[in-house]
């Protein structure tokens, strides 16, 4: 008689743990430039300082290229397929989501972080902007 609720609890706990493990292992990692070169995948989050002078917008081919300097000081060239995020001019740090293709990091999503000239709105909406290329 008492076995059913216990069994139910055990099943739901194990399901939730399984899903939690699955989510942890499938979550997309943040990588440095060195790790990006050795890690496979197309959902790596490469994060670093944006080298302002390197930003080149190519409207004909609808892409942006720039260089990221990661927290270890390593540089990596990034090509983003798509238009730059609307606040790229103000961004100091960027996260490029994608993977290595040859010698450059090809990103399909760009997340920019802006220094807080405007204090961001907590619990509401971002200063940083994500361009989703899907």
């Amino acid at each position: 008689m008492k076995i059913r609720p216990l069994l139910g609890a055990a099943v739901s706990v194990s399901v939730l743990c399984g899903v939690a493990m699955m989510m942890l292992s499938n979550a997309s990692p943040y990588v440095t430039a060195a790790q990006a070169k050795t890690t496979k995948g197309n959902n790596l989050h490469l994060q670093g300082d944006l080298i302002k002078e390197s930003v080149k917008v190519d409207h004909q081919n609808m892409q942006v290229s720039f260089t990221i300097k990661d927290d270890e000081g390593q540089m990596l060239d990034v090509v983003h397929k798509g238009l730059p995020p609307a606040n790229m001019g103000d961004a100091t740090r960027v996260v490029a989501v994608g993977g290595m293709q040859g010698g450059t990091f090809t990103s399909h999503k760009l997340i920019t972080k802006c220094p807080s000239k405007y204090e961001s709105e907590p619990g509401k909406h971002p200063e940083s902007v994500k361009i989703d290329q899907s």
């Binding site: 939730l16 899903v19 939690a20 499938n26 979550a27 997309s28 943040y30």
Partner: peptide, 24 residues
């Protein structure tokens, strides 16, 4: 529960002292 866990992944990772990850 999965949504709550998903949004906690960066916290879980940083508490375990690991490289941050995000749930896409």
């Amino acid at each position: 529960a999965v949504t709550g866990f998903g949004m906690s992944v960066p916290l879980v990772q940083s508490l375990m002292g690991q490289q941050p990850k995000v749930v896409e």
